[in-house]
Design a protein around this nucleic acid. Structure first.
Lengths: 150, 150
DNA sequence: TTGCTCCTCACGTCACGTGAGGTGGC
DNA sequence: TTGCTCCTCACGTCACGTGAGGTGGC
């Protein structure tokens, strides 16, 4: 899958608005090592980002907001992911060793499954609360019905 | 609906564990006025709670965790709820004024519907992320299949 | 009486928000 | 050149965590 989108570079404000955060948050994540530090090495130079950074950051933001993960939890996931990216290269280079490929795939599956389990648990709790609220609505509708209203 | 459960009083630690929080959090919520301050007015006396407090606090905790609401947001909801509780008394006392009852019911319905909207939006985002992860799992399974594994 | 949980300060921490004062790029 | 966004400190804030030192109830 080739990337057809114009991969022009973004500045921090645009990355922030496209991921639903703020420049301060992005700088903080770089500071604590959750995002790779941009080398705007010449002091005072602007940081630049690309479409890949949009993907990376927005998935971090979603995990934080949807699951309430701490930055430490996210760091664990990130390092697991980047280990997985490293393994992916190893994977490409290991076409001749199927046992190695299998090991890498099983590990990747484990990671994805554990994230999925967290999401499903969260969804169940939400659905449960939704049900309670729907019941409340029904009781209110019933009472309104008694008044000949809706 | 009468309450048949033995309504024995709880101490702060038990309330905390039954609502998935900590004593410190409960004291903090009382301090900032999110929960009514217990009158353990004799200095150094223990706070006591009941089953009603378990309900109140656990719904606060769920809203905070599931929707990421700030304590300020929760305070707004709580004051709306307690206004609603006040209106409920007015409702009981207004059996002779159907227009008043209707007004109260419509207001209650508005509150519940807005909470429900928040929950549904959150659920959609979660389901979307779940789908992405399931797709990833399928791709992994496919590759494992190519190796004659599962 | 012995533990356990509770109490009140009060300082620490996490994840940023919010200026202050200054510089870069279209 | 004029704005706008960016930069780096650095202090502030929100929502608690974590002892310190002491008291209450089964």
């Amino acid at each position: 899958v080739t990337n057809e989108t114009a991969d022009r570079s973004l500045r921090i404000g645009e990355l922030a608005s496209r991921t639903g955060t703020t420049p301060r948050t992005i700088r903080y994540y770089e500071e604590v090592g959750l995002l790779p530090a941009r080398d705007h090495s010449v002091k005072g130079t602007h940081r630049t980002y690309d479409e890949g950074d949009v993907e990376t950051l927005s998935s971090l933001v979603r995990l934080r907001e949807l699951l309430g993960l701490s930055l430490d939890d996210l760091r664990t996931m990130v390092s697991a992911e980047s280990a997985r990216a490293g393994l992916r290269l190893a994977f490409e280079a290991s076409a001749d060793r199927p046992d190695e490929r299998a090991r890498i795939l099983y590990e990747a599956r484990g990671h994805v499954e554990s994230q999925l389990a967290l999401l499903r648990a969260r969804r169940k709790t939400i659905v449960q609360l939704e049900c309670e609220l729907v019941e409340r609505l029904e009781r209110i509708a019933e009472r309104l019905g008694e008044l000949g209203l809706q």
